Simulated assay, not measured.
Amino acid sequence: MLLGVAARSIEHGLNQGSPLEPDPRDYPDALQAERATFVTLEIHGALRGCIGMLEAIRPLVLDVAHNAFAAAFRDPRFPPLTRAELPRIEIHISVLTPPQTMRFSSEADLLGQIRPGIDGLILEDRGRRGTFLPSVWEQLPDPREFLEHLRYKAGLPGGYWSDTLAVSRYTTESFGTSIDEAFGEGLRTV
Rank of each mutant, 00 (worst) to 15 (best):
L133W: 01
W161F: 01
E55N: 10
S168L: 10
L96A: 05
H149D: 00
I57H: 13
E173K: 10
T40R: 07
G158E: 09
D119N: 08
L20H: 02
L111V: 09
R103F: 08
Q16P: 00
R151Q: 14
F183W: 13
L31K: 03
P76W: 09
A108R: 13
R128M: 09
Q139A: 11
N67W: 03
P87D: 12
Y170W: 10
D109F: 04
G45E: 13
A33N: 07
F69L: 06
D125Q: 08
L111S: 05
L96E: 08
D180A: 15
A166P: 00
D29R: 13
L150N: 04
Y170C: 06
T172P: 05
R58I: 07
G158H: 03
D119M: 08
Y152T: 14
I10A: 01
F132D: 06
L86G: 03
A33K: 15
S168N: 05
M1A: 11
G130K: 01
A33G: 03
R8S: 06
L86M: 13
T40G: 06
D23R: 14
A33V: 14
S162H: 05
E173C: 11
L3W: 02
I51P: 03
W161V: 09
P98K: 12
I114S: 04
V39S: 05
E90M: 08
G120I: 02
V190Y: 13
I114Q: 06
Q100Y: 01
A6G: 09
D75C: 11
F104R: 03
L81S: 07
I93A: 09
T97F: 07
A182M: 04
G155L: 07
D142M: 03
V61T: 12
T82R: 10
H44S: 11
M53D: 14
G45R: 09
I179A: 12
A108Q: 14
E107D: 01
A6V: 03
H66K: 11
F38Q: 04
F73A: 04
R48S: 05
R151F: 03
D26I: 11
T82D: 04
A166E: 14
R188A: 14
S18N: 06
G13V: 00
F132Q: 12
E90N: 13
P22D: 11
C50P: 01
D180F: 01
L62M: 14
P59V: 10
H12A: 12
G186E: 06
A182I: 01
L111R: 07
E90C: 09
M53C: 10
D75G: 12
E11G: 00
F146E: 00
L41D: 02
A71C: 07
I118W: 14
R144N: 10
P134Y: 12
R115E: 13
F69S: 06
I10M: 12
A30Q: 12
A56M: 10
G49E: 11
G158R: 13
G184V: 13
R74S: 15
S94N: 12
D109L: 05
D75V: 11
H44F: 12
I114E: 09
